[in-house]
Amino acid sequence: MAKSKKEIISIQSVSKIYNLGETVVKALDNVSLSIYDNDYISIMGPSGSGKSTLMNIIGCLDVPTKGKYKFKDELISEMDDNQLANIRNEKIGFVFQTFNLLPKLNAMQNVEVPLIYSSLGRKERIERAEEALHIVGLQDRMTHKPNELSGGQRQRVAIARALVNKPSIILADEPTGNLDSKSGNEILKFFAKLHKDGNTIIMVTHEESVAKLSKRRIDIFDGKIARDE
């Protein structure tokens, strides 16, 4: 860890405040954080502590109420909707707890979704989607619809979809939350491999054992970072 790492994300004094009339919820309270290239971070904390909020801000799905967010050299906190959509498309891969595959599309078409919103031609889209499904070991399930796949396989399709645009960072909010322990372990092995191949991964989890597999651990409590090591 002594090696000097390249910073890709810099979050400075970011707050997310929900004003609900009488009460004010500080989902994130003055959080500062740096994320480096090839980090493998797990975020832990009790329910409602602000983990998803932080992930959504990192993933450019949400904008902070206060503070500065820089992605490489771009100031995300100042961007408009279209610019954010572009960053999400090119720089970020999402993996969700509930997979979020489109039920009417087959594995291949699901993986293609992010590419549709990039400027790639059809041929290259197909090549990239096939490649991504290869990486997750589903090359023989390409024409299967989500309801013809197991939970673990569905999550692998979702990971292939997150990888397909070669993002700078992969964000996974409780990726094993809906899986049995065997499939969950497979997915985690997978993340380890992706990390080894040079990817940057941030994962939210509730399980100590899962968090142990990562290289850096951040604990959040009441919208504040309680521990980062």
Partner: peptide, 16 residues
């Protein structure tokens, strides 16, 4: 609605 959310997360713009 979920499909819309997902597409947006994957980079779809409002115009898309």
């Amino acid at each position: 609605t979920r499909e819309i959310g997902l597409r947006k997360a994957m980079g779809a713009t409002n115009f898309n």
